[in-house]
Every structure is written in structure tokens, then in C-alpha cells.
């Protein structure tokens, strides 16, 4: 598990309007590009000081590449990061206010406490 890296993906996409649109339109391509070019960048450091060891597991890569927020929840991705980014991706496709958020809840309705651990 590399929950930290999944969270880092959600965090760095969510804060960049261009990357939000790119991830909406081409999730698999964006994940592939991001893992190759961005996953190891230390956010407050020059590129030459990048890390050398961060990579997704296969299931993590697939969940991100398929916009599968249910699996991300089950993997312990941070609930706030996932929700915020996916609202940005898909709320626009629903007519009623909060309809996407309610569908999101419905798709997780098979879960009861305890939820997957989000600790990193």
C-alpha cells in the first residue's frame, strides 16, 4: 500500500485547475504521466532533489485510472481529498444540487463502521 502517494495524487490534481480537467478527460493517461513525472517531486524542493522510491501498487493505479472512488475509499485514501476532487470532476454532470454527493454516499452504503484506516 502507498496510501501517501494516492493522497499526493489526489492533492496535487485537486489544487490545479488544468490538472482537474485533464484527469476528468483522460484519467489513465493522467495517472501514467503523473506517476512518471510528478510522483517523486518533493513539493517544496527543486526537481533535482526529487525522491527516488515512490510508486503506486497495481490496484491503486487502476483505481485512479478508472475514477473508482469506492475502491479508493476501501484502500484508505483520505476521505476529504477524494470527495473534494471527485466533486470537482463530476458534480457538474448532475442537475440537482448535491445529487452527486448523495450518489457517492449511496455507492458506499454497504460500509458501516469501522471504515478503512486513513492513517498514513
Amino acid at each position: 500500500m502507498s496510501k501517501y502517494l494516492v493522497n499526493k495524487f489526489l492533492y496535487t490534481i485537486d489544487r490545479d485547475p488544468e490538472l482537474v480537467e485533464r484527469y476528468r478527460e483522460d484519467p489513465r493517461g493522467t495517472v501514467t504521466w503523473w506517476e512518471a513525472e510528478r510522483a517523486n517531486l518533493l513539493l517544496n524542493c527543486p526537481g533535482a532533489e526529487r525522491s527516488t522510491w515512490l510508486e503506486f501498487t497495481g490496484p491503486e493505479r487502476e483505481a485512479l485510472a478508472t475514477h473508482d472512488y469506492v475502491t479508493l475509499f476501501e484502500m484508505g485514501a483520505h476521505n476529504f481529498l477524494t470527495l473534494t476532487l471527485f466533486i470537482a470532476l463530476f458534480e457538474r454532470d448532475f442537475e440537482e444540487p448535491l445529487a452527486f454527493q448523495r450518489e457517492y454516499a449511496d455507492r458506499l452504503s454497504h460500509w458501516s463502521l469501522p471504515y478503512p484506516d486513513i492513517s498514513t
Binding site: F73, N79, F80, T82, A105, L108, H110, W111
Partner: peptide
């Protein structure tokens, strides 16, 4: 609740 099954009830 945010990002879970009980959100936005």
C-alpha cells in the same frame, strides 16, 4: 461525515 456513506443526509 465527508467522503463516506453517511454524508449529505
Amino acid at each position: 461525515e465527508l467522503g463516506g456513506p453517511r454524508q449529505f443526509g
